[in-house]
Design a protein around this nucleic acid. Sequence first.
DNA 1: AGATCGATGCTCT
DNA 2: GAGCATCGATCTG
Length: 229
Amino acid sequence: MTDALLTGTPDPALVDFFDRPVLDVAPLVLGAVLSRSTDAGRVAIRITEVEAYDGRTDPASHAYRGRTARNASMFGPPAHLYCYFIYGIHHSLNLVCGPTGTPTGLLVRAGEVVEGVELARSRREAKPRKHPLPDAGLARGPGCVASCFDADLSQDGAPLDGREWSLTPPAAPSADIRFGPRIGVRGEGADPQRFAWRFHLGGEPSVSARKAGNRLDLGENSSIDSTLT
DNA sequence: AGATCGATGCTCT
DNA sequence: GAGCATCGATCTG
């Protein structure tokens, strides 16, 4: 991260939005519009799929074994990005949640590109591909989300301050939210009873159908555990 | 449609 | 040196 990226301060209302338990924020961030503006132009996605990670209790979290140079951003203030590099190829974007010092975040797994479709497509197609890419597939998968934004490690720690990056929460929570086990997680963190921490919107082409989760009831008498089928 | 596997490099032990 | 919060092409049934 660079000093220039840290000069901005997110709006207090947005800080409040993210300064809560990560499992509280997860269903509410679905439908939010995340955007990045660069010299190349502006790309915005409506977030349709996220996964929660909690470094205090969650063996799958990069922060589970404590603070390191890589995961430092997750220990930082909310309403900032945690960006990392994985599998030698892909970058992934997380939205840091909770108060400073609490290493929790939401991995942005998929979204609908609502602005800058051509720019997002050109970034995705920088490498030639065999089959044509439908719009709905532009930001399907965390590596693809990062690619649409041309995000790399230089964006780790960047604030959602409305300068380069911005996020607008939805006016109201979605009526059709699903949840289930996280994708690509191995070991204890893959336990579907303890860590059904993947959340996505129902009926979204930007989310693979075969990965559909259970219906989440946001009613006041419900809990995530009790709605597991 | 599902399983398998190669690409490719950073991070931590 | 092992493992990895992935993607997408290529197998197989």
